[in-house]
Nucleic acid binder design. Structure first.
Length: 551
RNA sequence: GCGCUCGUAGCUCAGCGGAUAGAGCAACGGACUUCUAAUCCGUCGGUCGUAGGUUCGAAUCCUACCGGGCGCGCCA
């Protein structure tokens, strides 16, 4: 169901008429959470100049006129702020309503959209490395969140499973006898061996090029060998996803190869619309507003001079498919920041070609890099890229439980603004204090421990102590936090909220004995604890962070 | 060169138009016969890169500059 108790909007609704009466026209009450009260409105300050009156005077008049009966106390404060304090009974009643709701007071969206989220996207025949971590974690958190809010989410794992490297890889497999059953570790060495041969052996290079042609023209042997590489890689990816607690499954793979038959059609459509220009044999689109190093228009190369297709063509084909066939209303790409220009160009061309109609939005959700302690891109001491599987191994080894190690990595990634770079630091992410995964997991485990010992269940909540009040208010902030996180594709807003909640609970836990309290108080505090546990659990689930019953 | 992005406490980060800029770590000092002290409380610590501008009000918006990162025609 979802029954919202959103004090900001409730207060706004009550203040708006009073403000309008004083100002003579509608005014945004601008209600915000406040450090000086539960909520505040700064609207009178904005009106002072216009009305030629002192802001305190305006605030006083608004306070007098506003009908806040049964909702809040209002006082004038400071230079002309309106401080709003919710009544304790209303707080308790709001908690009751929220607690009685399966969805913790968060209604499913009234306007569900079909949202296609493109994330993770590793390369076949290559091991996943830290470079795939952020896309996988952030994309999954967004997928979980949007889905829970009632949207129809389609996860797409845009595998790198096609293109010239596969001529080389398949040819190398032929050289090795074709039937060998390689592990993915073998495949990493396999890839490097193939690469070396490609770079040093002219004969092999020629065969590799012919192999690409054979593969792309459907030669059965080539396809079979290629398919083995793909299947084996997919098994490995799924294993990593399972360890990471990521919701990408076998049905979500949609590699670049899937669009190969669409590419000639796509080129024909673009040509027919006059959107392509021949440039030294390559077919390029030149969307408006993009310039290169020399100041000339920047090309989006759709078909290379050798007749092959690059990633621009595949990305265009993917849009065409996601909108035309999957019926997407919204396309999200959780892909590193460096590809920003590329996607802007692809979107521009797709718009012009009509594959992205007006009602459909496409967003590139970029993210920063993971840096080492030296402030540079995270690498091993030897300077190699760090394999994801090994990173997960280390996380598990360093933590007291696998879920804590994995949760620490994921939370570290989700707790900061995704656009910024972040410094990877085991000690910090595994710390039990601060804005970390372990801190949230610990808070949750403490609550579960309470219930194991309680013997009785929670009862009606009454709010009296300051720590109870603070916790109650924080609990009721779940819905706005979630809305902010989903609306702007910023998981760190939800993460920050969960940390605030865990802190509010910890303070409550220190100051307000639960099990030793007298009957009614005990039941009430168990009620607060239970709602906290449910909120933490839900929020952590939406971020993809596992909860533990005990630590 | 052009474009994007980021410069907030010693460190790692929140805050992104409103009241004395907040956390965690680090440093120092407190709280466990008491529900998980993997916790909590306190102290110390900031010309919010610089300079202008807009505004009643700017870390937040605009402009310029400085500094870091990234991108800019056949890799994805």
């Amino acid at each position: 169901m979802g029954l919202i108790v959103n004090f900001e909007s409730l207060l706004s609704d009550r203040l708006a008429p009073a403000l309008e009466a004083v100002a003579g026209h509608p005014v945004d009450p601008a209600v915000r959470a406040s450090p000086h009260a539960d909520f505040q409105s700064g609207a009178p300050l904005a009106l002072a100049r216009e009305l030629g009156r002192a802001p305190q005077e305006i605030a006083a008049e608004v306070a007098t006129r506003a009908d806040l009966a049964g909702l809040a106390e209002i006082t004038v404060s400071g230079p002309g702020f309106l401080n709003l304090t919710i009544g304790d009974d209303l707080l308790a009643e709001s908690l009751r309503l929220t607690g009685a709701d399966q969805r913790l007071g968060v209604p499913a969206t009234a306007a569900p959209e079909r949202i296609v989220i493109d994330y993770s996207g590793p390369n076949v025949a290559k091991e996943m490395h830290v470079g795939h971590l952020r896309s996988t974690i952030i994309g999954d958190a967004l997928a979980r969140t949007l889905e829970w809010l009632g949207h129809d989410v389609v996860r797409v794992n845009h595998l790198g499973d096609w293109g010239t490297p596969f001529g080389m890889l398949v040819e190398h497999l032929v050289d090795l006898g074709g039937a060998a059953d390689h592990s993915i570790r073998d495949l990493t060495a396999f890839y490097q061996d193939a690469r070396v041969k490609f770079d040093t052996d002219d004969d092999f290079r020629t065969r590799a090029r012919l192999r690409v042609v054979a593969l792309q023209s459907g030669d059965p042997l080539s396809r079979d060998l290629w398919q083995r590489l793909v299947a084996q890689s997919e098994r490995y990816f799924l294993d990593v996803y399972q360890r990471l607690g990521v919701t990408l499954g076998p049905d979500d793979f949609a590699g670049e190869s899937r669009y190969q038959d669409d590419l000639p059609v796509l080129v024909a459509e673009l040509l027919a619309q006059g959107l392509l220009t021949d440039s030294d044999g390559a077919l390029c689109a030149f969307p408006d507003g993009f310039t290169g190093r020399d100041g000339d228009a920047l090309p989006l190369i759709v078909r290379k001079a050798d007749g092959g297709f690059g990633y621009a063509a595949t990305d265009l084909a993917a849009i065409r498919h996601r909108v035309g066939t999957l019926g997407a209303d919204r396309l999200l790409y959780v892909v590193g920041a460096p590809q920003r220009t590329h996607f802007e160009m692809v979107f521009a061309v797709a718009r012009k070609a009509g594959w992205l109609p007006g009602g459909v939005t496409a967003e590139h959700l970029g993210f920063g890099s993971i840096l080492g302690a030296d402030g540079k891109m995270l690498k091993t001491r030897a300077g190699d890229t760090i394999k994801l599987a090994e990173l997960l191994d280390e996380a598990v080894a360093r933590a007291t439980a696998p879920a804590i190690g994995i949760g620490a990595i994921k939370y570290a990634d989700l707790s900061g603004d995704r656009r910024g770079d972040y410094v990877f630091d085991w000690d910090r992410m595994l710390a039990s204090t601060g804005n970390t995964g372990p801190y949230l997991q610990y808070a949750y485990a403490r609550i579960r421990s309470l219930f194991r010992k309680a013997g009785t269940g929670p009862g009606p909540v009454t709010v009296t102590e300051p720590a109870e009040r603070a916790l109650a208010l924080t609990l009721l902030g779940f819905e706005p936090a979630l809305r902010a996180a989903a609306g702007q594709a910023e998981p760190h807003r939800l993460a920050g909220y969960l940390h605030d909640l865990a802190v509010a609970f910890s303070v409550f836990y220190e100051r307000c004995p639960v099990l030793r309290a007298a009957d009614d108080v005990r039941a009430s505090r168990l009620g607060l604890a239970e709602l906290t546990a449910r909120t933490l659990h839900t929020g952590m689930f939406l971020l993809g962070i596992e909860t533990l019953e005990e630590i």
